[in-house]
Design a protein around this nucleic acid. Structure first.
Lengths: 193, 193
DNA sequence: GATAAAAATTAAAGTAGTTTAATAAATCAC
DNA sequence: GTGATTTATTAAACTACTTTAATTTTTATC
């Protein structure tokens, strides 16, 4: 399994010695996901935090009318999972599946608890990760309140320039909070400018 | 200044000894805000993280058409500030002001950095705070995608039962992402049921 | 406690985005 | 490679929410 990738990510935030690194590696479990394979389904308990080494995943809900709403996409170098379900070990409200063939590294809750004890620096690491995630989410909330669908779409493609190609329009529209039909209309309109 | 309130909050997450507590207290600065007084304006650099002891604050933006959009309300026991501006010491995109006469405890960035060094347990503390904030924001994003305005309003008043009374309808509507006019219509409709 | 200013209500017209449905294009499975 | 399924496009009718504007109610100020 490709451990270097996650170690490199971690070294951007904290410095680990050999023993700490070895312990960290020892709790990682590699998993491969085929396209459309589920990592988590509504009602499941989220047992692991998951670092994406390769591929693309989406976290989404299905509403009472059967429509999907994408809470986040995750690509290489990001963490995915349902944090609430993970922390409380209660059933999740989210689905998570792979959009592409993907590879993740998993940490079980009991192992993560051990990790925090044995290597307290990881408190800092995940604090930093969470800070970034919090800021990104806050910006998205603000944009959902302030922007039109067109502005949100334009912001999405400029902020994540290579992501759109990896997604279907249906998935992008479920992230933006509009229908695929309307996204198609927007794209047509924008291409004519 | 009322330190006990924040110490009590902290003790729910981490245990501090006397020296650690004393150091923590030494970096706190108390500030009172009058109604409508600003804690932060767009373009300012957010110099402090702020714990609310008493009162109610709102974090919001003003769009190009002059409309306000509320990213969050903060009441007793919550932290407010623009995390991005705070971390990068760059100009903020948000306004933060007091909806009621309020009292906050402030920590400067340089002091917080010292605190993390001297009392690493605070890495854990803020990680836990951020986890909760992240989960709450993710739920809000999901609801903004999945719910109608009426559903969002009903969820807001059930989730924060005593908050609505402290806010004007204009502020609630700016949080829900609808106009005050439409919120008024919704409330009328719901009261007739 | 009178006056001004801000917030809430109501109604009517307008619009951004949805829904439905039919067609075309792309992807999937064997 | 062919048929089946999913995805994207287009157009027309529809609706949740906005805009404007006039009136009433509440709050703030001296």
């Amino acid at each position: 399994m490709d451990i270097d990738f996650i170690l490199q990510n971690i070294s951007r935030h904290i410095q680990l010695d050999k023993t700490e690194t070895d312990f960290f590696i020892s709790i990682l479990q590699s998993k491969k996901l085929k396209r459309k394979e589920f990592l988590l389904k509504q009602g499941d308990i989220c047992k692991t935090e998951n670092f994406i080494i390769k591929g693309c995943l989406r976290t989404y809900t299905i509403d009472e009318n059967g429509f999907e709403h994408v809470v986040m996409f995750g690509i290489e170098d990001w963490w995915v999972g349902d944090l609430f379900s993970f922390l409380t070990q209660s059933p999740s409200t989210y689905y998570i599946d792979a959009i592409e063939e993907s590879e993740i590294l998993q940490i079980k809750k009991s192992d993560l608890d051990k990790l925090y004890e044995r290597v307290p620096k990881f408190e800092r690491f995940f604090r930093l990760i969470l800070q970034n995630a919090f800021i990104a989410q806050q910006q998205r909330i603000n944009q959902n309140l302030s922007f039109t669908a067109e502005q949100r779409y334009l912001d999405f493609i400029t902020k994540h320039p290579n992501l759109e190609q990896r997604l279907s329009q249906k998935q992008v529209s479920a992230y933006l909070g509009i229908t695929p039909v309307f996204l198609s209309m927007l794209r047509k309109k924008l291409s004519q400018k």
